[in-house]
Nucleic acid binder design. Structure first.
Lengths: 332, 332
DNA sequence: ACTTGACTTGCAACCGGTTGCATGAATAGT
DNA sequence: ACTATTCATGCAACCGGTTGCAAGTCAAGT
């Protein structure tokens, strides 16, 4: 079944309304320039034949298409969706559309997406970019660009500082009376992991609490579950996990072992990607991804308006969200 | 700090290479038409001044911009990311870019996005659309359109038949000895919800089990948790939830109420988006979202090529994944 | 040497709008 | 009545490519 997809153009409307194409254009973009009656007549004619202005053509002559690109390493990672949503909502306020790209954690794919998008958008947000600093600088010279969780000098960036929140977590646990805290580590190569581990180490030392380090290779539910025995054997009464997924795994492992969270073991996660969707609701370090997305979009819009490069550096402090997975240690 | 954002155009390359603009155009789009030496010279000149073809301008004259839109109710819902990723990967094979939109489960927002996208894309995939059948038909007449999990006669659609899996779930529960099963409903307007509800109803009747229907507005963890009291009061010994998130909420609610899953209440989810990441691991109906995304993109690409409307209807069967949240009912 | 056909490249119109400037009409000022 | 303004609209160039057609070149065919 074939269908007729011929879209009505501005010329057809002009002919129907008996005016010049430019008047039709103005009827839509700057109606105050025209006689109200004429506007009405044009709009009526347009409605009659079902005319809808062509965004692409408009973009070609104005140079503004009202689109921005957002590239993340992996849409399926729960860390990103809230960020995406926030950026989208913020963009909406400026009447901008967001084109989303997922790079599968590969620099090559990211580069390709960027090349493809760059002629269709007026600005770009790169989240946890895997590209080289040089390449990023290169792109930033062509098009307004904001980074999230990636630092390249001279490029506008929004950084989430998880160290502060992790330190809060240790303080919180120490305040509850815990004297020995386990850190269930994520990927050793990860910058975030080092940042978090250091924060635990430093703060534990300051509060005089002891610390146990449990290594896990991958930041997954399963890895968290497998770490359970080691955590319970470490003598720690509280555990801080590299991320929420591992914390969730640990909680499942503890339950399987017939122990209870938080009565027997307090558990703290990181990133707050699960919301309160665990039982008991997980105490975690909020990553403020929503603010990151919103701030980045806001920053980008600002850069687009002023057509300038801003060497902005927004640091988002994180904080502890206390829910129900932490409590005073069991009385020995 | 101001920056120079003047993009090199085809004319500049032409001047630099000493050829006509049309030759530059051909060097990029149909190099076999040109003398290889000329192509090389042009490409060199282009690289020299950093020329990148302008997709928008090309789209204007060819009518093909190589973009498709994918609109989902909520990016942050874990059901969608795998689907998005699959669609994106499939689109990539046809050198298409995907523009993602999130409608916040609102028809108005969806309509707005669609209007905005429709002039910049050559095709649209609508996932779990909240729009009226009329509106969908209207859009489909303008632009190739494929639906996922929404049925409108005459429009190409990919349907995940959760009915089959849900029926399996009811059989599974009945087999364990449950005589009264609750269905915790999702959005009333949703096609999937009606499908699941009907499957529960039919299968319960066939197995002679009683059924209780609990209504919730949104498919969220919180909604599931709030439904707990109603479920427990309904006299049901097992509950099938509209989706995994609600099931997770229900499990949390049950635990809060001091009861246990599956000892006091068996819980079944739908969609299998959480993997085994709950405790107890959730028995759920697996949804083949990856296939749905891939198939929809494939179908759309086919429609775009043939410029035809296809009244295709792909049905994807689902199946039950039994984990640990279901067990025989407590002995009364 | 002359025609023919293949191969390269240039010319110019076109895609669907936008916009600076000019024109003409209506209104106001004196 | 006559010029100065303002207002509404048309004209035509332009945004950055694409593409059908024509023109020119060159080598093979006879």
């Amino acid at each position: 079944m074939k269908s007729d997809r011929s879209k009505p153009t501005i010329s057809q409307v002009a002919a129907a309304a008996g005016v010049n194409r430019s008047s039709v254009s103005r009827a839509f973009s700057r109606p105050e320039m025209l006689n109200p009656e004429t506007v009405e007549r044009i709009l009526a004619a347009a409605a009659e034949i079902g005319y809808v202005p062509n965004h692409v053509a408009r973009a070609l002559s104005t140079g503004k298409h009202g689109n921005i690109a957002l590239i993340v390493p992996d849409v399926a990672n729960p860390f990103f969706p809230p960020l995406i949503r926030a950026a989208q909502a913020q963009a909406e306020t400026g009447d901008l559309c967001v084109f989303l790209g997922s790079s599968d954690e590969q620099a090559r794919q990211e580069d390709k997406l960027l090349a493809r998008f760059s002629s269709q958008v007026e600005g770009v947000i790169l989240v946890s970019s895997r590209l080289s600093a040089d390449r990023i600088t290169e792109f930033a010279a062509r098009i307004p660009l904001v980074l999230i969780n990636r630092e390249v000098p001279g490029i506008a960036r929004v950084l989430i500082d998880s160290g502060s929140g992790v330190a809060d977590a240790v303080d919180h646990l120490a305040g509850l009376g815990h004297r020995r805290i386990a850190y269930v580590s994520g990927p050793g190569s990860s910058w975030s992991n080092r940042q978090r581990l250091n924060a635990v180490r430093r703060t534990a030392k300051r509060t005089g609490a002891g610390m146990a380090m449990i290594s896990a290779k991958k930041p997954t539910f399963e890895a968290g579950r497998e770490a359970t025995a080691a955590v319970l054997a470490s003598g720690a009464t509280a555990a801080i996990c590299f991320d929420d997924l591992m914390a969730q795994g640990l909680m499942a492992g503890v339950a399987e072992a017939g122990r209870r969270v938080p009565d027997d073991l307090s558990v703290v996660g990181c990133d707050d990607v699960l919301g309160a969707a665990t039982y008991p609701a997980l105490t975690t370090v909020s990553s403020r991804t929503v603010e990151a997305g919103r701030t980045a979009a806001w920053l980008l819009m600002d850069m687009m308006q002023s057509n300038s490069i801003q060497d902005a550096r927004h640091l988002l402090e994180t904080s502890l969200v206390v829910r129900n997975s932490t409590a005073p240690p069991p009385r020995a």
